[in-house]
Design a protein around this nucleic acid. Structure first.
Lengths: 148, 148
DNA sequence: CGAGGTGGTCAAGTAGCTTGACTATGTAGT
DNA sequence: ACTACATAGTCAAGCTACTTGACCACCTCG
């Protein structure tokens, strides 16, 4: 495979990722959740299961804890998350999603599903599944956010 | 397909795109081209064929022309591009890559090819080709940079 | 040739990060 | 049990890559 082909493949991957991100963002806005940027999505993903500390969130987002704290401030101010005392550590605070935060998470999932469904119309559902598996195998482990 | 699966697929796509971007960036740095951020790559891609005006570049990057001009300033200062008078329009200036700019473009291609070759080791070259075609079909047309 | 559109720059402001310094709390060593 | 160090979080200040607004030079079309 030639270098130019690799570049074309790379461009396609980045364009697909960018397009998907935009689709999800638009879908979230359309469902009434405003004041959020795509970057918040990665925070939601980390907070969704059981909450997380600011430091933990910072590590998974690849930013300083000050930046993560600022992001949490914003999410709290807009009603998507809240800070609760940490059960096991008096220094730490557990950041958890509010009801509205969970609703927003579902909205993002719906928007993603909508985009993926359209891919199914184009490629066929079988191919989309295969695509997902292949992407999983080439994606680096542990990285949450794209960071460019 | 359930919403949670769509979300997993989305995460895989974004992770793959982020990983690739980082790989290319590291490869470019390793080949001796410093002071560049991934965002510059999209500018290189637009300038490579025949050069472009600042306004044109801005449109394709999805930023204001002031921001694009600033990006060009930086590339000029670091020796990757230069502004030449536009042959057909005395208002405009044609931004073209320097020799070093072309070398850097080749370095990025090599780095991308290296990453794609590893995908070939994992998935098989046939699958990688199919992946590229599928991504092309689901990627929105005309968008250059991810913009999140 | 005059009116409006377009290419580019200068200037000022903003958002989202950074580094640095600090307090409070947890943890390990002797 | 006390000391020493590590860790969670915040406050403050600074930086950088953008933005909006204003402006000039030059095209284009009536």
């Amino acid at each position: 495979m030639q270098n130019s082909e690799a570049m074309a493949l790379s461009a396609a991957l980045l364009a697909a990722a960018g397009g998907l991100t935009q689709r999800i963002h638009e879908g979230v806005v359309a469902r009434g959740f405003e004041g959020l940027r795509p970057a918040h999505g990665f925070a939601f993903a980390r907070l969704a299961p059981d909450g997380a500390t600011v430091t933990d969130l910072a590590a998974h987002l690849g930013v300083t804890k000050q930046a993560a704290s600022q992001l949490v401030d914003e999410m709290v101010r807009k009603g998507y998350a809240e800070r609760r005392p940490h059960p096991d550590d008096a220094r730490a605070r557990l950041v958890v999603l509010t009801v509205r935060g969970w609703e927003c998470t579902r909205a993002a999932e719906e928007a993603a599903a909508e985009a993926v469904r359209e891919w199914g119309d184009t490629l066929g559902e079988r191919e989309v599944r295969a695509l997902g598996e292949q992407l999983l195998r080439i994606a680096p482990h542990g990285s949450i956010r794209p960071a460019w």
